[in-house]
Structure formats: C-alpha cells, structure tokens
Nucleic acid binder design. Sequence first.
DNA 1: CTGTTAGCGCCTTCAT
DNA 2: ATGAAGGCGCTAACAG
Lengths: 345, 345
Amino acid sequence: MNPRSVTLRDVAKLAGVHPATASRALNEEARARGLVNPDTVARVMRAAQELDYHPDPVARSLKTRRSHTVGVVIPDLTNPLFPPIVRGIEDRLAQSGYVVLLGNTDNDSEREKLVLTSMRSRRVDALVLATARRRYNLLAELNLSDLPMVLVNRVVDDKAIPSVATDDVAGIGMAVAHLVALGHTRIAHVAGPQALSTGAGRHNGFLLGMEAAGLEPDPALITFAEAFSVAEGVRCARALLAGRVRPTAIVAGNDMLAIGCYQAIEESGLKCPADISVVGFNDIPFSNRLSPPLTSVRFPHYQVGIEAAQLVLERIQSPNGPTKILFLPPELVVRGSTARANGVA
Amino acid sequence: MNPRSVTLRDVAKLAGVHPATASRALNEEARARGLVNPDTVARVMRAAQELDYHPDPVARSLKTRRSHTVGVVIPDLTNPLFPPIVRGIEDRLAQSGYVVLLGNTDNDSEREKLVLTSMRSRRVDALVLATARRRYNLLAELNLSDLPMVLVNRVVDDKAIPSVATDDVAGIGMAVAHLVALGHTRIAHVAGPQALSTGAGRHNGFLLGMEAAGLEPDPALITFAEAFSVAEGVRCARALLAGRVRPTAIVAGNDMLAIGCYQAIEESGLKCPADISVVGFNDIPFSNRLSPPLTSVRFPHYQVGIEAAQLVLERIQSPNGPTKILFLPPELVVRGSTARANGVA
DNA sequence: CTGTTAGCGCCTTCAT
DNA sequence: ATGAAGGCGCTAACAG
C-alpha cells in the first residue's frame, strides 16, 4: 500500500515481462523508436496503472545523470522584483516536468558559493542566475562551466552566457526623455551599485540619455548607492539636496531608491512632484498606490521568467546551441511623481 | 577534473583503504561510534580534501531514502505575504543542509495535486504547506499521510497537523478594539474567503471582537470576498458603501482587501480616514508608504518561516513527536488610515 | 522485440 | 577496525 514500495519489478512481474522490458514500455522514447511491442506496452501500462506505479526519480537520476531539476539563484526573494520572475520560471519549467530548487545569496559571495555547491552536488541540470555581479569568476572557480546556465536581469560584460534582461539603457532613456519633455534640465541620478550590471547599465543609460537630450550630466548631481535599498536612497537623495545646485528631478536606479528619495524630499520640507520629480525603475507592485503614485520604468517580470526558463530548456536540450541574449522592451509608466519643472510655462 | 567523477572509490584508493572503510571514515555517526581508526579517518579525510571529493546526494538518497529536500507549497509567490515566509524556511533549512523545492498552486486543486505528486515522487523528506484550505482531504487522497508535514499561516480544523500561524482572532480583536477606542461603532468587515482558514478565523475574530466591545455586529455590514484580492476588496467595499447604513470604519480581511477599500472609498467621493477608517492585515511591505499609510495587523512573517522549518526538521527527526501548534503573536501597527469617528468629541 | 547482464555511487550487514 | 558482498531502483548495452 505504501506508494514507495511499488517498483518497476513489481510492474514487470504483474505484466509478465522482464523489468528492462517494462522500463522500455514506460519510456516514451523507446516506444517511439519502436523498440517494444505495442501489445506489451499496453499490458505494462495497465499493470503500472493498477499498481499506481510512479518511477523513482532518484534512482533514475543516478543512472541517467539528469535530475529534472533546475537551480534558481537570486539575491533575495524578499525583493519585490523577484517573485514574479521566479514564478515565471517555475511555471514554464513545470510544464516540461522540471522542478525548481531555490537559493538566496544576499549578494554574499560566501553564501553564493555554498548555494552553488549545494546545487551542483544535487545534480541540477541547469542554473538560472539572477545574482547581478558583472564579473563572474565564481563560475569558473566552481568548475561550473559545463553546467547549462542562463542569466536573468543582467548580462555579463562579455556576453558569453545566455541571458534574459530588459534594456536598461533604453529604459532610463525614456525616463530622461520624459523629464526633459516636462522642461527639466537639472536632472540628478541616484545610481545603483556599480558592481551590479543593472546599476552600471542604468548609470550608463542616464549619461547617454542626457547626452541625447543635449544636456550635460553634472557630476555633482550623480550619487552612487551602495545597495538597492530605501536607506541608501535616502542617504543619496539627502546628499543631492544638500548640494550647491538643487536638482528639479531625480532618476533613481530602482524603485527602492526612489522611495528613499521620497523620504529625503519630505524631510527637507520639499514636495514631490511640485518641487522635485522622481522616476523609479521596476514598477514594483503597489507603486501606483504610493504617495505620490510613482512614475517608473516597467518591464515584464513574469515574462522574463518564462523566457529564461525557455532558454534554459533549450540549453539543456542542446548545450552547444547559440548563446541567445534576449532583451525585453521596457515601458515608461507615467504617474504622479513627475510634473512640469517649476518656472516653466 | 570533472567534479562529478571524483567518487568514494577514488578517495578510498588514494587513502589505500576499502570504499566501505572510506565511507565509514567520512560518516559522522560511524566515527562517533568508534567504528573506525582515527588514523584511517585522518588519511581518508586528507584524500577527500585533496581530490575535492563531494559525496553524491543522489546515490546517497537511493540508499538512505532521504533526499534532504523539503517541498514548500504556497498559493502564489507573488502575494507579498509569502516571500519572507519562504525565505525564513529556506534560511533555516539551509543551515541543516536541506534544500527547498518550491511549488505554486494558485489555490487550484488540480495544480495542487500535480505539485504534491511531483514532490512526493521526488522523494521530499517533508512538506510545508501554506495553502490555506481548511479541510484537507487531498492529503489523505494522495496517500501523503506518512510524509512529515507542517502547515503555515493556517491550521486545520481538527488541529491534527503541526502548524505555525498567527492568532487571527487576537489580531482582529486588536483592530476592532483600536477602532472602538477611536469612537467607532458602525464597524464593517470585508471578510476573506471562508474556505480559507485565515478568512474564517478573522471573520470569527471580528464577531468576537465586536462582542467583547459590547457592540452587536450588523450582518448588513459584513461582506465576503471570494479572494484576497484588490478587486474583491473594491467590490465588497462598494456594496458596503451602497448599503442603507454607512459604516465609519472597515476591518479588512487582509491588506489587499484594504487597498480595495481605499479605492472604493475614493470612487464614492469619500475620504479615508476622515470619513471612513480602514484597517488591514499582514502589514505588507510599503504599506507605510500607501496613501494614506495603512493601519494593519502585523505578524512576523520571516519568523513564521523560521519556526515552520524548525518544526519540520523536528518532525523529520522524530515523526511521532508531539503535534505542536505554534501561534506567533500579532501586533497592531497604527498609521494614517484610522482616525476618530466623525462627530465624536 | 525481449531477456540478460551490469553498474550508476553509496551504505550496511556480515564476516574476518 | 577493516574487507567483502549485496542492493537501493532504474536503464543502457548487448545478446539472442
């Protein structure tokens, strides 16, 4: 009665065949290749059904060296950016009979090493990495190079690994263009950590966007956060507001930083957007309910997850296929945190 | 060089012993029971180190029937309630060398069955279930009764399964008491789905809380949502506002519903909290940044995850231990969405 | 087309 | 304290 105890041999015995034959009968591929008599197949199938047989994936893995398991490594599930991505990954993988092993690293190399080691030893068939370091010597170091792998929400500098991300440069470009259209010229940037590809990409996007608008980015109006956190947003925005020239708008590296900006602006007795406009990035849930509702660059998180899973499946199938780099288009969601610059008609 | 290829036999050969001996040398327990010469242990350990040997958990599982894997089943990772819980679970389990297999069900029985089947067949050592159905015949049905199991954020009616949750009744009680202290008497309730233990528990808590305050709950002021969603919150709140007696305060079954109430109140030209106070439940991230900042019942989500993992580990260790039911205390976080009732001095 | 054989990597008696 | 042997459940190669 214990489901564990029903083994392939039981099925074989009931069907009156050798275990190996039963194995073939139950194996999609062997069947397709006509390696087994349809009659036998039917008999075996019936027996399996009757006994409520479920093959043991552990035993199978031991033999086939495939676990039908994919490791998903992210910095922190608690960051609202990741849940929809992870869901997308899981949904797509589930369709193909794969299962997700989740690991958080907190952007800590040691933890990351632990997580990756644990996943490797558990025989994951592939990895999806959403940790955002730009250089990834860790991979070589851990001898993971032979494991299929897809990056999410970032690309490595040399683009040697398949990735799914949004176009940070384009996204920030839209934000800058929007502010410029509203008459802003003293536009500041609270940049994310430059060791992360998103932080660096958006900083770069800011410089390019300003240039494209014919504005010279003022170094005094750019501050660098050490983490994508509200606290760092506050710190950076305070620095900006205490500076010689006050900006009329801030482009934040992400929504957390933007919320930090809100707080610093409030503290200093100013109003957003009346005195200072703020734009975020990611369009996290309920950003439409913030006060004021946050203008933000959105990209399809769930879809990113789906596509990443898709790539990873392709990669598992044919490890030497082309290295696809997929960019999903961002979109600017305009809400109440941006307004015409003061003193502009 | 391929890490996969380093096997126990290689270690044994290098150490000049039989594989079985190497196994014992590497096995904590065998060592402790003095089944192996300390000298040998040292030699084997060194060899293992030198070869960078990592035991293969798959092979080990096949033998020991333990996968060091725990299935975590939730309705939807995208619900902000769950990420911190899942992180708590993962963090605690990782400490003990366990790994999390994640599955979303969307509260759909079919999907749930699939997920559970997949997990069982993958030989998870235990399950953590955060799906909130009150009755759980599915468990019996899937023959899962022998699998250690812990419920999170809910309890089954007969309390036969270990659980970690908050005290919904007490939490809602605090919300009601708070409103009463502010002079409210016409207090409405937007209840969550009654098939979910949280929905039912909070509804019950509402009735008890009103009673405790000497108020008679008015059935016309209670509406039932069909899901914990913003949309359902809007629908229910609209119904309330269209009713004969208008409430001066609404206790929502959770924060999503509360946000729905915000929207319905706005639509009808009223103001929160000036005209109607609103209290939520869960204190989701950034609820302090909503407009107005949401008064909500908070409980320690991350800690719930930690404790659930703890229980599950105990359960794996001794499946027949006592059935612990753990309640973590809720706390009322008062913010801007609640104010004195109109017309009260 | 089916049965035989062997072994994935590890652990656990049983002898010695 | 160590070695030998067998097997967890499944599948791949090879015979027949």
